[in-house]
């Protein structure tokens, strides 16, 4: 079984992952230990920099008693000699039991899955999919809010290039969430994603004014405006810093509003928000471990 896109999982499977993730929490915290994946090897292939995703996958594998082999820095390996991704995958699959890949090109994980007989998990392909981020975001909301039905979720920032927001929006709408997309016109949610959300039964609102949406929101999902995805620096400078979540903005919010962010943040969330009851982004980052444990365990058939 490969996990390339969130659409590879049925709603039942997503619920199963969320349920199992909950059970993984004491193991993820190191309060209990497990040998569920003893003897298994995870290969990590990160062709693009990553901190949280990489470390939480490694931590998840080790908490389950498994081991890790790493491709290393692409410029130091055979990739720099012009080896195709297909050949790299054929090599890596014989050294490991499961492959986690992040790559700057869209479709790289699907290609890897086709060339590998071992399971492949997509840890982000260019501006494409990042299904494990979506799962940990869903898990974070579910843990805090208990139920998705009728929740009002506001997504703000780079909704055009941000890879997490597209699959997140689709998944949330299938869970009955009311969505609002806040972005400048140039970075608004792609029409295709809006259509998918509508197909899943959602009626998303689109606006560029964050202050108007804050009062009745239950979840505020903030994303970074990603400089590296802009073809044109001038376009980036026009929109960078347009939205900033600070205490003043949150004065209008419900007391149980949660603020989420896939991190890293730049200046879209003021550090003064960190010690308010709203801030859940560090908890969200921790949740990457139990969710990835649940996935690795599910895909590799570990007993826990």
């Amino acid at each position: 079984m490969d996990i390339v896109s969130i659409r590879d999982l049925s709603r039942e499977q997503i619920e199963q992952v969320l349920e199992r993730s909950e059970r993984m929490i004491p193991y993820a915290r190191g309060e209990m230990s497990s040998k569920a994946l003893d003897g298994k090897i995870l290969a990590t292939l990160f062709f693009e920099p990553s901190t949280r995703t990489r470390m939480s996958f490694e931590s998840a594998m080790m908490r389950l008693g498994g081991r890790i082999t790493d491709l290393g820095v692409p410029s130091m390996s055979s990739i720099s000699k012009g080896e195709s991704l297909a050949d790299t995958i054929r090599m890596v699959e014989v050294y490991s039991d499961i492959i986690v890949i992040r790559h700057p090109r869209e479709g790289a994980a699907r290609l890897a899955a086709r060339f590998s007989s071992k399971p492949v998990i997509n840890a982000g392909d260019g501006a494409g999919q990042h299904p494990t981020q979506t799962l940990l975001d869903l898990f974070t909301i579910k843990r805090i809010k208990k139920d998705f039905d009728k929740l009002k979720v506001v997504m703000v920032g780079d909704l055009k290039y941000g890879r997490t927001v597209h699959s997140m929006a689709e998944a949330l709408s299938s869970f009955g969430v009311e969505l609002t997309f806040v972005a400048p016109a140039a970075l608004q949610m792609p029409k295709e994603t809006v259509k998918q959300v509508e197909k899943a039964g959602g009626k998303p609102k689109l606006t560029n004014r964050l202050e108007e949406t804050i009062a009745d929101a239950d979840v505020l999902y903030v994303t970074r405006i990603q400089k590296e995805r802009f073809p044109d620096l001038a376009e980036y400078q026009k929109v960078a810093g347009m939205y900033r979540v600070d205490k003043r903005l949150l004065r209008e919010a419900k007391s149980d509003l949660i603020v989420m962010h896939p991190l890293p943040r730049v200046d879209e969330i003021d550090p003064e928000v960190d010690d308010t009851q709203h801030a859940k982004y560090f908890e969200q980052a921790f949740n990457g471990v139990p969710v990835r444990m649940a996935l690795l365990n599910l895909v590799l058939g570990g007993e826990l």
């Binding site: 195709s84 991704l85 297909a86 090109r105 869209e106 479709g107 086709r114």
Partner: peptide
């Protein structure tokens, strides 16, 4: 061919 220039199929991969 895929119209997305950043698609992996527009690189020299054997697919």
């Amino acid at each position: 061919r895929c119209s997305n220039p950043n698609c992996i199929t527009n690189q020299s991969e054997p697919v």
